[in-house]
């Protein structure tokens, strides 16, 4: 009986190994793009377009592999040896971490590509239920008693950090840069948050599937996607008077591309994002394009909103992260004071 079981296992093993090794045989040139969660649809389209472009240009067939996950955990994977040729993450802070912890990328990476190495931008908007029953127009409405706000946990989600900083920035502008007032505002806002999901899509599902909350703070592209995927008749997007300019950065990972000999390809892959065709794909996936001509073409899609950057209001990601989100930072104090 024992021998038979052993044989069976050996058979299964050989079969599965066989299947795997067959699929591993003669692979074309590959490029691994390690990205964060909300870019799945974008890069699915973009990769297909780039493969075609590259084939036409050089005759080479490339395969682009995609990896998605939380921005922070993706950065960690690259630090710990996931061989990404390019990283396209949610915040510069996460790429800075790769620079600092693993030295795979030079410190001046953000200067290498135009627009702070962010070929597309986004912002934070509100998703509310159809007809806007609670009449939510701007940030001030979010701190009113009786309003429930859904946002993920800034400690575990990059997107949630943008939400938090957008609210903070609004309060600063409104109160003449009074940090104390801003903290009070954000504290009040988080008092209206009943659930802190660990990731952005978790929050979307809490809001959409569970029917919890009056307003969801979300990336603009996520809000559009949720609208299209989950029901235009159930939700609508509200754009606040002022919000934050989210600049998801991209870069090649120098040590990896040099080792794998893919530098040229990786550089072209990112450059093509800035091209007209790349920008069109970006806009079609609800990210705000940088290229003027494309931006004009999609003008109606993206409502006008006054945007501030993280550099001008918070002095960059490193500072914002330390002051607000690291352990013992302001976000922790908001909850520990309760």
């Amino acid at each position: 009986m024992k021998r038979k079981i052993g044989l069976l296992f050996a058979l299964i093993l050989v079969l599965t190994l066989g299947l795997v090794s067959v699929s591993a045989a003669d692979r074309p040139i590959t490029l691994l793009n390690v990205s964060y969660d909300p870019t799945r649809e974008l890069y699915q389209d973009y990769n297909a377009a780039f493969v075609k472009y590259w084939k036409a240009k050089t005759g080479q067939t490339v395969t682009i592999q995609q990896s998605h996950g939380g921005s922070g955990s993706q950065a960690r994977a690259v630090i710990d040896g996931l061989e990404a040729d390019v990283v396209t993450l949610a915040l510069a802070y996460d790429i800075d971490a790769i620079v600092e912890k693993a030295k795979l990328i030079p410190a001046q990476w953000q200067k290498r590509l135009p627009d702070n190495s962010a070929p597309y931008t986004s912002t934070i908007v509100f998703l509310v239920r159809k007809g806007n029953p609670k009449n939510i127009k701007d940030w001030d409405d979010l701190v009113k008693p009786g309003i429930t706000v859904i946002t993920p946990n800034p400690k575990t989600s990059g997107g949630a950090r943008w939400n938090y900083l957008a609210a903070w920035g609004y309060a600063l502008k409104k109160n003449g840069n009074n940090q104390q007032k801003a903290q009070e505002f954000v504290t009040k806002l988080f008092k209206n948050v009943p659930v802190l999901d660990s990731g952005a899509r978790g929050s979307t599902n809490t809001f959409v599937q569970r029917g919890i909350g009056d307003v969801l703070l979300a990336w603009e592209n996520e809000a559009f996607l949720a609208l299209n995927e989950l029901g235009k008749d159930k939700f609508e997007i509200i754009v606040p008077s002022i919000s934050i300019l989210a600049e998801p950065p991209v870069t090649i990972v120098d040590k990896v591309v040099d080792k794998r000999g893919t530098r040229k390809l990786a550089e072209e892959y990112l450059k093509y994002l800035y091209s007209r065709e790349g920008q069109e794909i970006v806009a079609r996936n609800y990210y705000r394009p940088r290229l003027k001509s494309v931006a004009e073409k999609y003008e109606t899609q993206f409502p006008k909103v006054k945007l501030f950057t993280i550099d001008e209001v918070f002095g960059g990601w490193q500072k914002a992260q330390t002051i607000h989100f690291n352990d013992g930072g302001i976000f922790d104090k908001i909850y520990q004071a309760k």
Partner: peptide, 16 residues
């Protein structure tokens, strides 16, 4: 399909 393959492989090695 690939995911199913990988899962079967993983189980076929770790369980025995």
């Amino acid at each position: 399909f690939k995911a199913i393959q990988l899962t079967l492989l993983t189980a076929a090695i770790s369980v025995p």
